[in-house]
Design a binder for these strands. Structure first.
Lengths: 218, 218
DNA sequence: ATTTATTTTTAGGTAAATCTAAAAAATTAG
DNA sequence: CTAATTTTTTAGATTTACCTAAAAATAAAT
């Protein structure tokens, strides 16, 4: 099987591929992995030899079929564990990430199959992200960033882009979260701040905040 | 905190201290860890510098207070996870060990506190071993090896010394396990094989098998 | 009490994953 | 289209946890 480090690289490449269509750059991967570009080059070479990624010098890196499969397995495990922590062990959504980072590397097919069954096959993790099934399939519902919405748009919060504890706790303080129904009341020209009606309250979010909230439009 | 390897050494020393009262020998630890004596010496030096063990060259090794505390924390985690796997995820008692070996190293106080609560504070793991509480306290009920029993002794199986899958599956095949009530009917002089009555059946166990079953006498 | 055998330690080396510093390639700018 | 800048790769070290082989200490046997 694969080392902890290899699995983490595959996961990071998977996430970055969304924004780097032509191949994930060494620097981007270095930033995501909180390491140096030279370390990335080394690891990418290793992954390439194992046929987990497609890599040509100076051309960035892409997951191979096998690499994508492994990445999705790790992501499946991560999200199932997050769901377990929130639903069964009283964790809040801002506490689960670091523990799931460790749990996702436990190697046992039976463990994850049975955990999935025990949790009754959840479709989404506590941050609204879809949980891939055992074959790596997952639904990606259409969602847009709140920052891309226009005045009078109606929608529901279905995900967060930033799932750091700091951001999630801020949302808790604002009393908004997954499932909150909102209407865009006004967008301020000057700073793109956005005024919403949520549960018959009016709140104003900064552009930065709005650009970390995913909305499913009505 | 401590590395995976350090935690495993502490656990191994804890288990071996039962039989090596004057200090665990390098070779015994090497065998338990499935490594070479020279590697053990290296690691023991490191643990000694971190004040997790007391060590003098050629004199074997003992856990310090801090080392014992850490060992018990790891053992607590191992046994709670084993209980979880059997009670919640349909694992059988011969399937849990390897997965628990990985899970026991997950670092999160909240995780283990909440898991313990979720499981309703179990006292024993699936092999009959006591689960230490958060302070490292655990009950050690008086038990003897079946191989040390005499004719006409009455008792109950309360634990296994060897918890390898092979042995546990053999017990399943014999249809005996934790809780089985038995009476010693005969001990064969020639090979120490032991004849038992269990659930109104008569079975004969080899000395080797008998020396891996813990009995609580009536 | 020496010699022999066993155990333990030391010395030197390896593989994985990281690092720094310098060289090479690619990109951007004038 | 060169020149400057940025990105990426190479080269050489470091750390952790191992290893083998040889030396040193302890234990056992004659």
């Amino acid at each position: 099987m694969f080392s902890l480090s290899e699995e983490n690289y595959l996961k990071a490449i998977f996430h970055l591929e969304r924004n780097y269509k032509g191949g994930v750059s060494t620097n981007a991967l270095a930033e995501e992995m909180e390491t140096k570009a030279s370390s990335v080059t080394d690891m990418v070479k290793k992954l390439s030899e194992k046929n987990l990624v497609k890599y040509k010098k100076y051309q960035g890196v892409k997951l191979s079929k096998a690499g994508r499969k492994t990445a999705l397995e790790v992501i499946r495990k991560h999200r199932l564990w997050e769901y377990f922590l929130v639903e069964k062990l009283n964790f809040s959504w801002d506490e689960v990430h670091d523990v799931a980072e460790e749990l996702e590397h436990i190697k046992s097919d039976k463990l994850i199959t049975e955990l999935d069954k025990f949790l009754e096959y959840p479709r989404r993790d506590p941050h609204g992200d879809p949980i891939p099934d055992a074959q790596g399939n997952f639904v990606q519902t259409s969602k847009v960033l709140l920052s891309a919405c226009k005045k009078s748009d109606l929608g529901k919060i279905v995900g967060v882009k930033d799932s750091s504890a700091a951001f999630l706790q801020y949302l808790d303080k604002l009393d908004i979260g997954l499932g909150s129904i909102l209407e865009v009341r006004h967008i301020e020209d000057f700073d793109q701040s956005i005024e919403l009606e949520v549960d018959s309250n009016t709140i104003t979010l900064s552009h930065k905040t709005a650009s970390n909230l995913y909305i499913q439009l009505e």
